[in-house]
Amino acid sequence: MSYQVIATADGAANCEPIRLQKHGREGSLRVTDRARAILDNFWSEQGRRDSARPYEAYALEALDLNQTVIGRASAGGSITLEGLGRRSRLSALGESGRTQQQDRLWDAIFEQARDGTTLPLAKQLIAASKHDDLSAEALIEGMLAERWGSVPAGVSVKLQAARAFGRLAKEVLGRFNRAYGYVHERGWTADASDVALEAFPSGEMQSLRLLCADMLSVADIARFRRLQFHGPEFVTLIGKLAAASDPSRALDHLLAYHRAVQRTRRGGGAWLRDQQGKLLLQIVDYGGYRHETVFPDLKFGVVRRLLSDLGRIA
């Protein structure tokens, strides 16, 4: 159980102090020195006389690979699997007033982060939380305007990339939703040329091209090209949309990208199929087109929840 929480923290900030490392024989692991205090105080602060030991014993029993069944309660019945889950989640630290463990995790995840972005962004989020409950786009705009204090140049570059990506992602998803919705509302089939005009009206092509150009101009565009999942295809789509002037060609580019993404999703097929000049729905239960397209959260909500669990924001 404790390994699950440690791995979550490590993944959130790519933080070396709490990484599990291979050591000795094949398949064995050891904990880095900086993580020792976090693990030693996982259930409660050392020296406290409470019910921590039974939880530790039950967790280790559940992690035993020789076990084929995990009981819902310990042998004596005093510890349950549900109770174990409640006690091992991060929010339990604040609920039980465990400020020392919160401080250890704050230090490991944020203060000791190996990159130059994690800590400055966390401090910006903490400062922003004292004023408003803001959307991701508003947070990015406020940080770039240094509303909550100065922002290092390297962080500003990443925020500019996040803003450009978020705006373009919202726009592209909105165009796809228009196309899907148009076909769905017309009995699951429609002329491809009509769909193209609905999704890419001529009067809106210039604004789309500007968003694409903005994304292609960010300093981090090379990193997008190297992303393992859909990165190269996404940047290729942006380039094609930036040069597109014809609605039908723009729709072709968007649906080609959609098909490429779907092929990587466990053999999933395209939701819209072109057949002799008509578009036919392959998947008919997507309801996202009925809702307003919004700027993506970009994990700001996840980080704010983490900061809340560590007692840094209310």
Results as ranks from 00 to 15, higher is better:
M1V: 13
Y3L: 14
Y3C: 07
V5H: 12
R19Q: 12
Q21F: 12
G24V: 10
R25V: 15
E26D: 11
L29N: 14
V31K: 01
V31W: 02
T32G: 02
R36V: 15
R36S: 09
I38T: 08
I38P: 02
L39C: 14
D40A: 10
N41Y: 04
F42R: 01
W43T: 02
W43M: 08
D50W: 07
S51T: 11
A52Q: 07
A52K: 08
R53V: 11
P54Q: 05
P54H: 04
E56D: 15
Y58F: 14
A59L: 02
E61D: 15
A62S: 14
L65Y: 11
L65N: 04
T68L: 10
R72S: 08
A73N: 05
A73W: 01
G77A: 05
S78P: 07
S78V: 15
I79W: 03
I79L: 00
E82D: 05
R86Y: 09
R87G: 06
R87N: 07
S88I: 13
L93W: 08
E95M: 06
E95Y: 03
G97P: 03
R98V: 06
T99G: 06
T99Y: 07
Q102E: 09
R104F: 11
R104T: 03
L105M: 02
A108F: 00
Q112K: 12
T117P: 00
K123T: 01
K123Y: 04
Q124E: 12
L125G: 03
I126W: 04
I126H: 06
K130C: 06
H131Y: 10
A136M: 12
A138C: 06
E141I: 07
P152S: 03
A162D: 14
R167G: 13
K170S: 10
E171F: 11
V172D: 03
G174M: 04
G174C: 02
R175H: 05
A179N: 00
Y180V: 00
A190K: 00
D191W: 00
A199N: 01
M205I: 05
M205T: 05
Q206F: 09
R209M: 09
L211E: 03
L211S: 08
L211A: 12
A213P: 03
M215F: 14
S217M: 15
A219V: 10
R223G: 13
F224I: 09
R226I: 15
Q228E: 14
P232A: 10
T236K: 11
L237R: 03
A243I: 02
A243L: 08
A244L: 01
S245N: 14
R249L: 08
A250L: 03
H253Y: 14
H258F: 00
G268R: 15
G268H: 10
L272D: 00
R273V: 12
R273C: 11
R273F: 09
D274Y: 11
Q275D: 14
Q276V: 05
G288L: 04
R290F: 09
V294H: 06
F295T: 07
F300K: 01
G301Q: 07
L306D: 15
D309R: 00
D309V: 00
G311M: 13
R312F: 13
